[in-house]
Design a protein around this nucleic acid. Sequence first.
RNA 1: GCCAGUUUAGCUCAGUGGUAGAGCAACGGUUUUGUAAACCGUCGGUCGCCGGUUCAAAUCCGGCAACUGGCUCCA
Length: 689
Amino acid sequence: MPDENQQPNQPPAPPNPERKTLDDRAKMTELERIRHSCAHVMATAILRLWPDAQFAAGPPVENGFYYDVDLKHRISPEDFPKIEEEMKKEIKANNVFEKLVVTREQAMKDSESGRLGGLTERPGNPSKFKLGNLEAIPEGEPISYFKNGDFVDLCAGPHVMRTGNIGAFKLTSVAAAYYKGDEKGPQLQRIYGTAFKNKTALDEYFKMLEEAKRRDHRKIGAEMGLFAIDTEFVGPGMPLWLPKGTVLVEELEKLAKETEFAAGYVRVRTPHLAKEKMYRTSGHLPYYEESMFPPMLVSEDTSDKAEWERVKAMAGPAQKHAYELAKQLFNSGGFKDAKQIQEWKQAAATKKDADQAVQEFFSSTKYYLKAMNCPHHHRIFAAEPRSYRDLPLRLAEYGTCYRFEQGGELFGLMRVRSMNMNDAHIYCQPEKFAEEFNAVNEMYLKYFKIFGIEKYVMRFSTSAPEGLGKKYVNEPALWKQTEDMVRQVLIDSKINYVEVPNEAAFYGPKIDVQVWSVIGREFTLATNQVDFAVPAKFGLTYRDRDNTDKTPLCIHRAPLGTHERFIGFLIEHYAGNFPLWLAPDQVRVITIGAEDDPASAPLMKYAKDIASELRAAQVRVSTDFGNNPIKAKIQDAEQLRVHTMLVIGGRDMDAGAVSVRLHGKGPQGAKPKGEVVADILAGIKERRA
RNA sequence: GCCAGUUUAGCUCAGUGGUAGAGCAACGGUUUUGUAAACCGUCGGUCGCCGGUUCAAAUCCGGCAACUGGCUCCA
């Protein structure tokens, strides 16, 4: 990793997915030691209440600690007070955290007797997870226990000196977690807590959480009328952009279009659907089917006769029954109740058979909602003969994609099922790759500057040899070649990055840009992927200088990610206080004097003229000429987060001036009207922060 | 999808088996103003949905849905 480009406020690199070395562990900060120790104290307390509990891993994490436990009793927040009670006793006892170095044989023995992660030996209840942890310790590395009171744990430390050094703590939540993160492994209960040096720091942390809640994009989005998620009629994970949110969407599109135009991109537009053949050819279906909406089945021939032939050709009664029910479904526009669906499911031996029956019914054309834009763009590349002179061809589109994210993944605007990607595909000659890839990275940095994003890290995801042919296309030479190219560009451009093995896309290595919102939430915003596989699958070629046909390399890139996630991020980044160019409510003209008061007629004219002038210049301006007191009008505008308030009274009118007030910054004094208007227009044009 | 929790008016929230409440917002009026709340009044709810227990359910029980915090996944 190039250190010289390390930015001063760069966050620490994400935790290495591989095992922590003893050296890494020794670097634990004091706070981390407190939290790690607190996890042991929590385990001690849980064992006093439920002696048969088996523990897996209990590390400190960003905002606290957790311990994974296997226990018949389902721990709920109602149990927290009594666990905390036991923890307090252990802290009050002020036991020493004693380190014992043991042999592997001893540790094996203590795992089998249930002593590890226990208060006593527990015959017939071996410490199975500790045994697994023990196996992961490489030969030659010392094996140690930490002991506080009766609790003995397999642990490399480090810890605080005594349990009494844990100043203040609180249990926060419980969740399910898989042993060693393996979905197929046993499921454990993960108990989360947090700990601090003292009560003041703990209270501050909870106050910070409250503050974070106020900045949550879901809360601000509702307050400002940016978006709505109508789960009843539209569906979960499919946001509706309200007029004010649409302003943000369109301002971003404008920015992207200008930037891409200047960088030599051309724009294209594609439908939201494609035939099954598209995703079979691209190779997405086997890798990606789970994340796509189930296909729509479309018939080009529904004549009764053709249908009958198909029914007769079907294998068994199960398929025939499924077929009848499927027909009912399509004719009536949906099953009437859950019983009917159940019946249908039972009728078909497996879901596949039922799908098959439906498909047969409609002469077998499947259409998929697109989960990505690349195949469509590949077909645009294929639509015309290409010469090396046409390259690099940069096809850009704000393409709408649909992904069937699992229910539990959905999260406000951050994880959605319908999304608009700031997408483009760059087709280039392999020898032009570095130049193009670099230009894309520079575009990222340009955007970050506009939005004042200072904390970011580029995650360079590469393949793993064991995944070739499974998770990744089986092209070892191309993997190595493209990964080397990307790495070289990153090193040459001195961009700060971390390399993450085994996380590439199936068709090539990728770079994800990770950012942190002010409230500390982490986001993967942008992505930049190399694709050496899919263009070949579509038979894409260009005629090179030497009169031979060659396959282009493709770079997928989305510097602004999706509208949904990017705007979600921006809402929290700015806490809803957008810069003038983005603000849904840019200017509000507020009069001291009401429209329904005849004496204010000249003031009204003066104010209306200013509003009209701004509106004619495409500024989003509203007016408040109502009869509320000025304080109330100001408050309304402040709560709406109107960026610039122009307060106009008789005094201003007489001087040909307006009084400017900026949201969150208070009154800025009266200035000549022309100057104020010019400044507003310039601020918008320059996209001033 | 998995574990736990939550769901009462547009929003924030009271209401632990006996006639659904408050503040803000909205709407109607009064008041005519110098930088974050003038005053009076009116409207607004199948207590997420379905079922059960009970003389009686927002409240107790079961199922489902959505959301929240995590896990796995991911732009």
